[in-house]
Nucleic acid binder design. Structure first.
Lengths: 348, 348
DNA sequence: GTTAATAATTGGAACGTTCCAACTTTGTCA
DNA sequence: TGACAAAGTTGGAACGTTCCAATTATTAAC
């Protein structure tokens, strides 16, 4: 039948009105008569009309597209997958659609995908930056007036909004909790030292160690890749010390799972002979055995909140940078040894 | 400075050429002289030009946009997150960008996001359909000539491409392996019975049970939600039988993890006192303790292959539906009790 | 020195929509 | 009856690009 796609002019012809009227119907304008509206709508359905946002967007230079972009540094980490889900739910109900790209921590890739998204005319961007991203990388975006919300990792000097977890408070609370359970040799395990997130989490650990009187000791900081495999590796180094730790505050949940794996391989039962605390509260933390005591940051919630911040900026016209800190809380489960309902527990 | 965005015409003026020439430069046409090309490129960089794909796409009615859409039913499941990563890598290097949306198994949501993607002019769609999706839901897409590749779940009667795992062969191999290890009471655990994937995996189990001589018994099939929590629950029911199983072929890895959790809670050690086999080979399967014996389906690989199928169709013009089955293989690790390097193992 | 071929460049129309200003119709009031 | 307002409707211009046919500049061939 119809060769090309069906356009508003086709609808206009078929309904016996002008294209302008059809356009008004599309925008649900109150100017158009009820009877014509219904007729036009009927014709649209009949001919299988699909709105061409590209064309519309071209005309209205002011109001930008209904697209937001989200770029994350590691989508295979379920933390970021959940974050993306959170973003998706709110942008979807605001009538937006999201471009999602994964950079795998590559700065080059990140630059490419951001450029590509700009070409497609995104209205705003939520970015969890790759390691090593600098303020200058975001410069073009702010110059172009494109709202940006940084999540998870902040970038000093960048004039954009950010939403990060209260990392300092999280590890601080973890240490306090372990100290209250009687531990004094508490290690800080996992993570790459050259990131802001690492510094913040380590800072909370350090301050809490000083405050509880046990004091901060450099040797108890064992860094590694922030992954499950990294956790296994770091634990091995920690247990090789002359006086090994009896508890670990981990950089994130992935590391914590790795630590548990490593402990088991040594016939040490996490939650009984050794206390483990994670960070993130990923979805598996609750159901794994032993259930992981961890710092809850609610990835979906962060995604939702970031999306709301972004939409606010988009609607405001003038992007007003805003920094928010997402509060965290300690979720006590079994891996720290504090569970009440498990028989036969004993701590080292 | 410049109020609106900088356009091809601005570049043309500044470089002292016509807009047509600038357009040719943008398309890397061999028609344009080398010296003018470099000059135009320099001006573009200087003025901070960004290509407007929307406008370009409007003109060329034939060649569609450089956007592909991917819609998945549950992005919080790391299987789908990895699938999305696989898709991303190949579409990215083909110069495309992906819309990603999560339906959370909601048909309504799925309809909405597909409509929205069409409005944005996607060139093609990769869909892991929500439960209950029917061929008729995809009808509008095939009528409009938009290439579609179904992944993971096929839909009978839909005239679109599909890429699914060889579910039957997977569970068949799992049962054969367990039988060779001496098991005869092997349960099939987890999954919702009203899905095609469930039927296929159960079919492989049933056929293998018959073939190995132990025979198929309905009571050994224990269904549940395809999640970790579902696995815990299903195991409880299995162990309550008069003659409990000694091994379990699980619907997927999430269920298998749940089964391990449930076993431990009963002081039964998975991989020693009970054999567990999963399905999917998600990223954690390798590092968890005990490492999970499972059917590898390589989610990233499926994503990549699906993307390639889609791009092929997009480039071919006429979409030629094609059905592919992604082969699977059994990865023997520790949870089935067959590991050679672990001391002190004994099977029930 | 003319012609033909080749290389490089160009102006205008078109894509599908929205916006604006102008227009028609109908109803109200003096 | 005429003036005016309100309610609906409309044609044309514009958005930023690509395509086409036409044009000019350059080189090659006789």
């Amino acid at each position: 039948m119809g060769k090309g796609r069906v356009t508003v002019i086709d609808i206009a012809k078929a309904a016996g009105v002008s294209k302008s009227t059809v356009s008004l119907v599309l925008q649900a304008s109150p100017l158009v008569n009820e009877s014509t509206r219904t007729k036009v709508n009927a014709v649209m359905r009949e001919l299988g009309y699909v709105y061409n946002r590209g064309a519309a967007n071209l005309r209205q230079a002011n109001a930008r597209s209904k697209i937001i972009g989200i770029v994350v540094n590691d989508l295979t980490n379920s933390f970021f997958a959940e974050l993306a889900v959170g973003v998706d739910t709110v942008v979807q109900s605001a009538g937006f659609v999201q471009f999602l790209s994964n950079t795998s921590e590559s700065i080059d890739r990140q630059r490419e995908v951001i450029a590509s998204m700009r070409e497609h005319g995104v209205s705003g961007l939520i970015i969890s930056p790759a390691r090593g991203t600098e303020a200058i990388d975001l410069k073009p975006l702010v110059m172009a007036g494109i709202p940006v919300v940084l999540v998870v990792r902040n970038i000093p000097g960048a004039k954009v909004s950010s939403l990060v977890s209260d990392n300092h408070a999280g590890t601080f609370a973890a240490v306090e909790h372990l100290a209250a359970l009687g531990h004094s040799r508490i290690a800080f395990v996992g993570g790459f030292p050259d990131t802001a997130v690492f510094d913040e989490r380590l800072g909370g650990y350090r301050d809490a160690m000083s405050k509880t009187g046990t004091g901060f000791q450099e040797e108890l900081v064992v860094s590694s890749a922030p992954s499950r495999a990294g956790g296994v590796d770091a634990l091995a180094r920690a247990m090789a010390m002359p006086e090994p730790p009896t508890a670990a505050v981990c950089f994130n949940d992935a590391v914590a799972f790795g630590v548990c794996d490593g402990l088991r391989a040594r016939r040490i039962e996490p939650g009984k002979d050794f206390a483990v605390v994670g960070f993130d509260d990923v979805i598996e933390a609750k159901t794994t055995v032993p259930a992981l005591t961890t710092i809850s940051v609610d990835p979906q919630g962060i995604g939702q909140r970031a999306a709301q911040m972004l939409l606010k900026q988009i609607n405001a016209g003038k992007p007003e940078a805003e920094s928010a800190v997402s509060s965290v809380r300690l979720i006590v489960r079994e891996s720290c040894g504090a569970a009440m309902n498990k028989p036969g527990r004993k701590m080292a």
